[in-house]
């Protein structure tokens, strides 16, 4: 009788279960009504089955978002796990949609599902990509804007994984500052 290794039939479990959300900007509906849960997964194999099945971010129309969040956390500031948090924000210029957007978003997803931030991965709530005419954005959301140690570790690892040059900086902003800002920019709480 042939012995089959469990490697060949057991899927590789992830540390967390994740939910992928899609937002499509329809101005006739409320913000919440435009937000849809696509699917949940908790194995490496099911992550790829979903990723390979959906459109690349660069093919989405302006006003759309993908969000990947841990199961039980909704992709909005108001969620209990997000409301004291903030985000490492990557702003892309128009040329970067072709050059970097899909690569950066996939790298972001791999950081999340692979728990790339070591023990500080527990601070991660999710990640969002916004497709916008004026410039796309990608962000990793964390739970507590006061947790300097976790936030800076996550920021350093993330910047390295995206291959952002040392001389360039990325900023971390609290959701409360983003929600109450008066101009077009939000002040950075941390920079790496």
């Amino acid at each position: 009788q042939e012995i089959v290794s469990p490697e060949s039939y057991i899927k590789h479990p992830l540390q967390n279960k994740w939910s992928l959300w899609f937002f499509k900007n329809d101005k006739t509906k409320t913000w919440q009504a435009n937000l849809r849960l696509i699917s949940k997964f908790d194995t490496v194999e099911d992550f790829w089955a979903l990723y390979n099945h959906i459109q690349l971010s660069s093919n989405l129309i302006s006003g759309c978002d993908y969000s990947l969040f841990k199961d039980g956390i909704e992709p909005m500031w108001e969620d209990e796990r997000n409301k004291r948090g903030g985000r490492w924000l990557i702003t892309l210029n128009k040329q970067q949609r072709r050059q970097d957007l899909d690569r950066f978003w996939l790298e972001t997803l791999l950081c999340l599902v692979g728990e790339a931030f070591d023990d500080y991965s527990d601070e991660v709530c999710g990640a969002v990509v916004n497709i916008r005419t004026k410039g796309d954005k990608i962000a990793i959301w964390t739970a507590d804007f006061d947790n300097r140690e976790a936030i800076t570790h996550i920021g350093r690892v993330y910047k390295e994984r995206l291959g952002i040059p040392m001389k360039m900086t990325i900023g971390y902003q609290s959701h409360s500052d983003t929600a109450t800002k008066s101009g077009s920019t939000t002040k950075n709480k941390f920079v790496v």
Binding site: L14, Q15, V44, E45, W48, N52, L110, V113, G114, A116
Partner: peptide, 20 residues
């Protein structure tokens, strides 16, 4: 401990998943 997977390990499964 945590179930951590590095990028190369994860990428190795991208097209394997479609075959199973």
């Amino acid at each position: 401990g945590k179930r951590q997977y590095n990028r190369d390990f994860l990428l190795g499964f991208q097209f394997m998943a479609a075959c199973t």
